[in-house]
């Protein structure tokens, strides 16, 4: 799905936990996430911390959209 959307020239960030799969299937901008059942959350954290975590991931993801890349890139912390 990621690749097909990218083909339209729209930058897309794949926010996924198993980033090895993302890069195998050809996603270009990859943001590693927390775990399969909660990619953008962490129920083990208190609410406020969980929210901050999510916010920072989404900000990083959005910034990845504004970053020119030549090859597959993981946007880690």
């Amino acid at each position: 799905m990621v690749k097909e959307i990218e083909r339209y020239g729209i930058p897309i960030v794949h926010m996924a936990t198993i980033t090895t799969i993302s890069s195998s299937v050809g996603a270009r901008r990859i943001l590693p996430t927390v775990a399969i059942p909660y990619p953008t959350g962490n129920p083990n954290l208190p609410d406020v911390e969980e929210h901050d975590l999510r916010k920072s991931m989404v900000e990083r993801a959005v910034n990845a959209l504004a970053t020119d890349i030549e090859e597959t890139t993981e946007f880690e912390e």
Binding site: M1, V2, K3, E4, I5, E6, R7, Y8, G9, I10, P11, I12, V13, H14, M15, A16, T17, S22, T33, I36, P37, P39, T40, V58, A61, V62, L65, A66
Partner: peptide, 26 residues
């Protein structure tokens, strides 16, 4: 199927003038 979905969704997003996409996977 996921290729087909991507093509269809991508087309709509393009036509709607969307500038960027966050796609989450579990």
């Amino acid at each position: 199927n996921s290729i087909k979905f991507g093509e269809e969704i991508g087309k709509e997003l393009k036509e709607a003038g969307v500038d960027g996409v966050l796609l989450t996977s579990t």
